[in-house]
Write a protein that binds this DNA or RNA. Structure first.
Lengths: 159, 159
DNA sequence: TTAAGTGCAAACCGTTTGCACATAC
DNA sequence: GTATGTGCAAACGGTTTGCACTTAA
């Protein structure tokens, strides 16, 4: 976790008047110690690696705090559970391209597309709020290696 | 429901070897008798207006058949339930702009955006599959009239 | 006649919440 | 000391499913 992120998290705790608990520390380190997208369940696992006492309830409660402050972005990728994106506050305008084979997620930005969307919205009588683009396709790994690099990205289990 | 749609539904039933039941008829008429997006629950209500014997289970089972055949498009609009789009098979490349105030959904297409997305995907090493764009904003109704036209679009209740 | 379809109620599963206990301040 | 935070288990809500009954073909 870089220094800037650490500082942002400190500010977050202070401004909201939140207590520094061991569980919150473990969850924050887990969430922002990666640039990968994760689910509530994988975050629980990662946080428990740091502090086994972390409960599922606290993970969900902390996720709610982080998303409403904008430190995490909630993603709806068509699965029946949510993903969380720890890169959003640094790159608020990025979009996602997702591999259908291995669920690998790559981020991109495009001023051109944003401009076009803005024009279309205006023509349709809308004041634009947010834009979300999700491209699905196939990454090169399957073709090249016969298997994607990330086949294990989505399995989940309870404890 | 126009003649072309009717024909498509006939083909759908025949090709899948599905029986023509009163309940299916009611659900199909409800689903394709509108160009609006709907939820499973609103479809249940609409189908029951035609045949009160329709059950929630049959609605869900029929929705599964229609989406896997491509006659309906399942939409994930960030709510905790799914929307279904009956216009998709006629306009497979359209996207959505949604009013944050009233949940009004307007559809649009853009070859330019598709082209840009295609280029970006290629650069990132992806073979493009599908593209999904969701713009959120505010429609003009609230500003003009002080209220959106569609405030009742999303409430749901069980029976 | 009989396999496909249906309604009902229970199960499912990710997420939320009430409550009693623990703890940061 | 006390309000905030926590773990646990139960509740929640949209969706799915097992089962016995119905019905189209």
């Amino acid at each position: 976790m870089d220094h800037e992120t650490k500082e942002r998290l400190e500010t977050f705790l202070t401004q909201k008047g939140l207590r520094r608990t061991a569980q919150r520390a473990a969850i924050l380190e887990a969430a922002f110690g990666t640039t990968e997208h994760f689910t509530a369940e994988t975050l629980l696992t990662m946080a428990r690696d740091r502090d086994p006492s972390v409960s599922r309830a606290t993970v969900y409660r902390t996720l709610a705090l982080l998303t409403e402050t904008g430190l995490l972005k909630e993603l709806d990728l068509g699965k029946d559970f949510k993903f969380y994106d720890p890169n959003y506050s640094k790159h608020p305008n990025h979009h996602h391209i997702i591999c259908n084979d291995c669920d690998k997620i790559v981020e991109f930005e495009s001023k051109d597309i944003e401009q076009l969307e803005s024009e279309i919205s205006h023509k349709l009588g809308f004041t634009i709020g947010s834009q979300k683009i999700e491209i699905r396709g196939n990454c090169e790994d399957l073709k090249k290696k016969g298997v994607c690099s990330n086949q294990t990205g989505c399995e989940k289990k309870k404890t």
